[in-house]
Write a protein that binds this DNA or RNA. Structure first.
Lengths: 149, 149
DNA sequence: TTACATGCAAAGCATTTGCAGATAA
DNA sequence: TTATCTGCAAATGCTTTGCATGTAA
């Protein structure tokens, strides 16, 4: 919002661009715009549709299909994380630190939880020698209409 | 597995029927069939489609729409729990004990985790005075193709 | 120059819904 | 008899895909 900003060669944004180049992702116009929106605004949880709207607000245009595809690519390259919150609704998280998620169903909101706040004791993990990723989603629901009848 | 079973007037199935009647759900033919499949086979994690197939295997027929609607009703009446595992994929869990879920993404499988195996420390829960439900889904992914490029 | 990206519209898929006919009480 | 179910087919909503055009290197 118009605040002065000293050029930071290691900002999240620049790191992202570098990451793009380091992978097989060309830093195209669309990917730059999306990386900018995703990484210059701090830690965020956005949907494809929200990003689409933000791009439009900047008087630019990226097709929704490209936004979906790009989010998918960014995810598989480890730049962001996908959180499936409901059927027909994914949010993308730009927080790169180790953390879990709290999803407040009633509000459709997500809050990050530091990994240290959750102790997992799962002896039942079956032969996960090559465990690659753990994601914890705590879903809470507050007392509402539909559940008590 | 072919083991003898003494008639239990308080079996999960009968409890379910009773629960149905106690709510505003008429114990119709379709609901009885589904309750039977859901509660007489012990703790399960099934999708609507799987249930649909099981009904067919018994030479009966319930429309998929009715299965979806019934699962939804059973869920909102607390008979089962819905677990959203992916976009466009819900599983329904018949375990009534307090527990969380481990989802193995690669295999699409779900395993129950006793509540005591997970310590939640979430001071950040915002004004959840009327907290109604906590669901924890631990998602694990083992090292696979698409993630390293 | 050419392999890779993008955009559009169409397709996909699990789930939901509208409504006419069927059923439980 | 009447409020409630059921089943079908059509609709929904998010996401993906096919393919022609555009673009980075």
């Amino acid at each position: 919002m118009g605040n002065l900003k000293i050029y930071d060669p290691l900002s999240d944004y620049n790191k992202a661009i570098k990451k793009l180049s380091n992978n097989d992702l060309r830093p195209t116009k669309q990917r730059m715009i999306l990386a900018k929106l995703l990484f210059e605004k701090g830690k965020r949880h956005v949907s494809a549709e929200e990003l689409y709207d933000e791009v439009k607000k900047e008087d630019r245009k990226i097709s929704l299909a490209t936004i979906y595809n790009t989010l998918k690519q960014f995810t598989s390259h480890g730049l962001i994380r996908e959180i499936v919150v409901d059927q027909n609704k994914s949010l993308y998280c730009t927080n790169n630190e180790s953390h879990y998620h709290l999803y407040i169903e009633d509000e459709g909101k997500i809050v990050d939880i530091p990994t240290k706040n959750i102790d997992l004791n799962i002896p039942s993990i079956p032969a996960c020698l090559s465990l690659h990723n753990i994601d914890v989603i705590v879903r809470i629901r507050t007392l509402k209409d539909k559940d008590v009848n």
